[in-house]
């Protein structure tokens, strides 16, 4: 079918013939990543914070139970730690959502554009012609949501690997294929 189209239509527009991705992704429109990625980020981030915060609390509690730390010190200390924990938790809760709100990607025939950053904003443009290879990875939490992280590698230095987390796994795979250079020349 593609051959027929190419024979009958010498239009140089390469989009329908070359792209392995349905035009719905390579549309030059800005997309947000899957909203469930916020939940994934929270499910990963919140336990991490809890574990980090629990350790000092456990230690001072042991000290208190053994009589090393008087009540006068223990209670305010515990209160302080708990309030810091509460702050950190709410910050993570809000920050993951904010980060998601400000994360956009756009794919066109020539490459990928990622826009991110809540306060310090950054737009990064990755031309397909500069992509060395691409990876799709899935953490355990991501897997249960059928989400994935797309990582694009270039020969650059600062932008040597650029990841885009929270894509639907199928989308990530298709993007991966789309961005993968199929130039036969660079076998090395």
């Amino acid at each position: 079918m593609h051959e027929l189209e190419e024979v009958g239509n010498p239009d140089p527009d390469p989009l329908p013939a070359r792209s392995p991705v349905p035009p719905s992704i390579v549309d030059g429109e800005e997309h947000a990543v899957d909203p469930r990625s916020v939940r994934v980020a929270r499910l990963v981030g919140i336990p991490t914070i809890l574990i980090i915060a629990m350790l000092p609390m456990i230690f001072i509690t042991i000290g208190w139970a053994l009589g090393g730390i008087p009540n006068m010190v223990y209670l305010p200390l515990l209160g302080g730690l708990l309030s810091i924990l509460a702050l950190a938790l709410s910050f993570t809760y809000l920050w993951t959502a904010a980060r998601h709100r400000h994360l956009r990607y756009r794919v066109d025939e020539s490459g990928l554009r990622i826009r991110r950053g809540v306060f310090w904003r950054k737009v990064i443009l990755i031309p397909t012609s500069r992509v060395q290879h691409t990876d799709v990875s899935q953490g355990p939490v991501q897997r249960s949501f059928e989400l994935a992280t797309l990582t694009v590698h270039t020969a650059g230095t600062e932008g040597a690997s650029i990841s885009l987390a929270g894509l639907e796994h199928a989308t990530a795979t298709r993007l991966c294929d789309h961005l993968q250079p199929d130039r036969g020349t660079d076998a090395d």
Partner: peptide, 14 residues
């Protein structure tokens, strides 16, 4: 020789 190009904006820039 360009690989990726990027644009940054700090809050002050914005």
């Amino acid at each position: 020789n360009m690989q990726t190009v990027s644009m940054r904006q700090s809050p002050f820039d914005r």
